[in-house]
Every structure is written in structure tokens, then in C-alpha cells.
Amino acid sequence: MPPRRTTLTYSSEDVGPVVGDRPLYVYYCKYSGKHALTTDCNLAAAPRRRTDHAIVLDTQAHLVKLYASDGGMKLLRRRNGTVERQFRLNAGKLPVAYRTEPEGRFLYILDNALTTYTADESALGAGTPPVPPCILAIDKDKTQAALEVDERGKVRLVLRVTADFVRIQIKGSMSTTNGQEELLELLRGVLGVRLGQLSLQRGESVRHKMLVVDGLSPETVFSRLQKSVNSNPRSLGRSSKHIINTSIVPMEVPDPATAPGGAAPASSAAAAAAPPAP
């Protein structure tokens, strides 16, 4: 008896959605600039918890690749006396998200903790971080960078590059001509350019400036700034005034029937917060 054979015919209509067909969003810690999350969910459109305004991400409904370390468990007491458990997830030393169960389905992204870029295949394949939005091209041969300056420090250095600002520390004051000259001299050495290629424009305050660099691309400016950050001595890279307050102010627990976007209220004492309804 000859062996039975089965012929299967597939068409493109039989193929389900694949990751490459969806836009991917790459999220970074807003304060440290560390890569924290890649997902196909636009967090700007995701539901939020009413208790702390955290973004609710369903890890079963969306592609989620989390780049975070265990931040330990925290107990938060709400104003009505209930206690909520949070299993924190850190980007570096800063918490950016939490779960209410160790392996819970729902991931809660702390409000205002992440910033995003839309990833393309070339950026993901290269494995290198994209240029943050605080550094951009304004002309064919000119690059603009948003600066945030810490004054009266012990040393001059580039502290960090985040999505919003290049944070720099100088010894003087930005309200004086000497302080601005000190800032330009520091950036001249970091970027490897002449002083004539640098200019400062007004920002939203005295400590915030727009740097214009002539003759360098945004990619080169970002690379040289980040190289300077990476070369900082650990003992000088972060003083006490740079520590970010990551505490959560307890908020009122809502009525379950009024929780927006299907997000659930906080748990009762010694119980985890319930996830949002599907």
C-alpha cells in the first residue's frame, strides 16, 4: 500500500500578523536615557490607572521586550488605609515600571518615566541608540542641542544625555559672561571643534540654552557627548543634588465602577492591586 501524502497550500491571506508589520516603539528612561522598553503598543494611547496615573500595558495583547532589573517589592499605603504591593522594575537605579504580581500579566509604567522614539529596522538592527530628540539638525551643516546647566559645581563636565536635555555642570553662573564662556570652552573640548563653530541661543530660563554647532552632524554630536559622559569618574558623575525623587505620593483609591480605560483600583490590605479588565 503506497504511503499517504498530504498537500497543503498556503496563501498570504492565511498568514497572521507578524512583528515586522507593526510599528515598534522604543522607550528610554526619561532621566537616565537608558533603553527600558520596546513594544508595538503606543503608550500614549494606552489606559491609565486612576490611583497613580500609571500606564497599563497588557503583555499578552502586545509585544513587550523589557530591559529592566528587579527593583524589589514596595508597600504603598493609600489615604483610605489600604495597602498595595508593587514589584518594581528599574532602568539603572531608577524605577520605571511595576507589577502587582511577580509574574503578572499587566505591566504598569510609572507616569512620566519613559520617553519614546519610533524605531525602524535599521536602528533596531544596528543595536545602537538613536539620537535623542534634544539633538537635531537645523540646517545642512548645523546641529542644535538643548542644554540644561547646573551651576556652581566642583568640576566642569557633561553629566548625562537624556531625551529632553544635555545636562552639563559648570563652576560658574550662567547669568554671567564668564559662566557662558566656561560652558562654551567645555563643549569646545568635548566636541573637538573651534569656538567659532559654537554659539548659544536663549532657552526657557537662564539655565536652559540652545547650543548651535556648525560643521557636525547630530549623530557625531551625540556620540562625542555620550563618550564624555562615559569617561566621567564615578565619584564625580552624580552629586546629591542630582538624585531624582522617585517616591510616589499616595492618591485616593477610586470606585471600581469609575476606573477609566478598564484600569482597576488598588488592592485591599496585604493584597496586590487588581489588573484592568480586558
Score class of each variant (00 low, 15 high):
Arg202Pro: 10
Ser122His: 08
Leu191Glu: 00
Tyr108Ala: 01
Leu124Met: 08
Gln197Val: 12
Ala119Thr: 07
His242Ile: 09
Glu252Ser: 15
Ala271Lys: 14
Gln201Ala: 14
Ser12Glu: 11
Leu63Ala: 05
Ala137Met: 07
Thr9Cys: 06
Thr128Cys: 14
Ala271Gly: 08
Leu198Thr: 07
Arg238Phe: 13
Thr82Ile: 05
Ala54Gln: 01
Ser205His: 06
Ala54His: 05
Asp139Gly: 14
Thr220Asn: 10
Glu219Gly: 06
Ala145Thr: 02
Leu157Trp: 07
Glu101His: 15
Glu204Phe: 12
Gly172Ser: 12
Gln144Val: 01
Gly16Lys: 07
Arg99Ile: 06
Asn230Trp: 10
Pro17Tyr: 02
Leu147Tyr: 00
Leu94Tyr: 02
Val131Asn: 00
Leu216Asn: 00
Gly172Asn: 11
Arg4Asp: 13
Leu94Trp: 01
Thr7Ala: 11
Pro276Glu: 04
Leu187Gly: 01
Glu219Gln: 14
Ala126Cys: 12
Ala97Arg: 04
Arg4His: 10
Val18Leu: 06
Asn245Phe: 08
Arg234Leu: 12
Leu43Trp: 10
Val253Asn: 14
Thr143Trp: 07
Ala46Gln: 13
Arg50Asn: 14
Gly104Leu: 03
Ala68Thr: 00
Phe222Gly: 03
Tyr28Gln: 08
Ser240Tyr: 04
Met174His: 00
Val18Asp: 04
Gly192Glu: 07
Leu114Lys: 05
Ala257Asp: 06
Pro250Leu: 07
Arg152His: 15
Ile248Phe: 05
Ser11Asp: 07
Thr143Cys: 02
Leu211Phe: 04
Asp14His: 11
Lys154Tyr: 04
Ile135Lys: 01
His62Asp: 02
Leu147Gly: 03
Glu252Ala: 14
Thr118Trp: 13
Val18Lys: 04
Leu63Ile: 06
Ser32Phe: 09
Ala146Asn: 00
Pro133Val: 12
Pro95Thr: 04
Leu57Glu: 04
Ile135Gln: 01
Lys93His: 12
Leu195Gln: 08
Asp214Tyr: 02
Ala272His: 08
Ser173Phe: 03
His242Pro: 11
Val15Gly: 10
Arg79Pro: 09
Leu57Ile: 09
Glu103Asp: 15
Asn230Phe: 13
Pro265Asn: 08
Leu183Phe: 00
Thr176Arg: 14
Gly81Ser: 10
Glu101Cys: 15
Ala61Val: 04
Ser175Thr: 09
Ala46Leu: 11
Glu148Val: 14
Met1Asn: 05
Arg79Val: 15
Ile135Pro: 00
Glu121Trp: 05
Arg160Met: 11
Gly179Glu: 03
Arg224Tyr: 05
Ala259His: 03
Val155Ala: 11
Ala266Asp: 10
Ala263Glu: 01
Ser11Ala: 08
Val221Tyr: 02
Val213Thr: 01
Leu191Val: 01
Ser223Tyr: 05
Thr39Ser: 11
Val158Asn: 02
Arg77Val: 09
Gly16Leu: 06
Val221Gln: 02
Arg77Phe: 02
Pro47Thr: 05
Asp70Glu: 13
Leu157Gly: 07
Ile55Asp: 03
Thr38Val: 14
Arg48Ser: 13
Asn245Lys: 12
Ala61Cys: 02
Ile248Ser: 05
Leu75Tyr: 09
Glu101Phe: 12
Asn245Thr: 01
Ala263Trp: 05
